[in-house]
């Protein structure tokens, strides 16, 4: 399998005298993978993400995106078409007066011919479940719908990778589920590599693999099972284990013989029912 993103010994600081905000980051993201970058506020997640599509370019270390070294300035437009970003605030990334214009905006910039643009825009709108809203003003949509418009704009670029930088953190629970289920669908049906950036451990459960950033360094890397079940490790980096993990651990401390690795409601309920004396 090929790697869509490859980061090699990356160091970064915003100014010559400023402290490093990224220390020796090395990671790869495989094609078709869903990677979550988890970390507290200020841990360096957004800074790192901006290296993936050449919004930042390394002075120390190396970043290869979709097979291209991001140090080549003449490739930046190409890289940004292949690695699309969706950001936190839905209101700051909507630029056009209607949903369809907004989805088309990135394509116009990329110089796609009209016929093809038309086809791509309507296909993306369809894929994101936005049919019927084409001529709506984006500002009149719900937060979840706005983020779906942003995702449709990203999808229209036919990217290999979509990076979502806290794209659900301003949404209510319904909006959050709405957006994440679309992301899941894009990964499955369009084979797009997904990188989500979050401090929400529930969202991190959806990933294939998690890396945890802490003060600019990679603190842990592993599967959701490995990372999210370690309550103490998460606490050390300013995060919290999922509620179910905290519950399971506390019950074990109270001598309830639960199996290891309980992560979901269903698993915990089933295990508890097995322990209940019948008569």
């Amino acid at each position: 399998m090929t790697n869509d993103i490859h980061v090699d010994h990356l160091y970064f600081r915003y100014h010559e005298q400023a402290p490093y905000v990224l220390h020796d980051i090395s990671l790869t993201v495989k094609q078709g993978e869903w990677l979550t970058i988890l970390g507290h506020n200020g841990s360096g997640k957004s800074t790192l993400a901006r290296f993936f599509n050449a919004l930042h370019v390394p002075k120390e270390g190396k970043v290869i995106s979709c097979g291209i070294d991001t140090k080549h300035a003449n490739e930046w437009v190409n890289i940004r078409r292949q690695v699309a970003m969706v950001f936190q605030n839905p209101d700051n990334q909507i630029v056009a007066p209607t949903v369809e214009d907004d989805v088309a905006f990135g394509l116009e910039n990329a110089g796609i011919p009209y016929e093809e643009m038309h086809e791509r825009v309507y296909r993306s709108i369809e894929r994101l479940g936005l049919r019927g809203l084409e001529t709506q003003e984006p500002h009149r949509l719900s937060g979840g719908q706005k983020q779906r418009v942003a995702l449709a704009g990203a999808l229209a670029l036919r990217p290999k990778v979509i990076v979502l930088d806290e794209a659900t953190s301003m949404l209510d629970p319904t909006g959050r589920i709405e957006v994440l289920s679309m992301v899941e669908k894009l990964r499955k049906e369009e084979n797009i590599t997904i990188i989500t950036i979050t401090h929400d451990v529930t969202e991190a459960m959806l990933a294939d693999r998690i890396i945890v950033l802490h003060e600019g360094s990679m603190a842990y890397e592993g599967t959701p099972d490995e990372i999210l079940s370690d309550e103490n490790a998460l606490r050390k980096v300013g995060l919290r284990a999922p509620f179910i993990v905290q519950m399971a651990n506390e019950l074990k401390r109270q001598q309830v013989p639960l199996p290891n690795g309980v992560l979901s409601h269903e698993e915990l309920v089933t295990s508890l029912c097995k322990l209940k004396p019948i008569t």
Binding site: Q246, M247, E250, L251, Q254, V256, V269, L272, C273, L275
Partner: peptide, 24 residues
Amino acid sequence: HSESELNTSAFTLEDTVESILSFL
């Protein structure tokens, strides 16, 4: 799932654990 009555209005970790322990 267990078809038994338990106190479902627990809002802290401690209260939730307590409700489960008394269920068990």
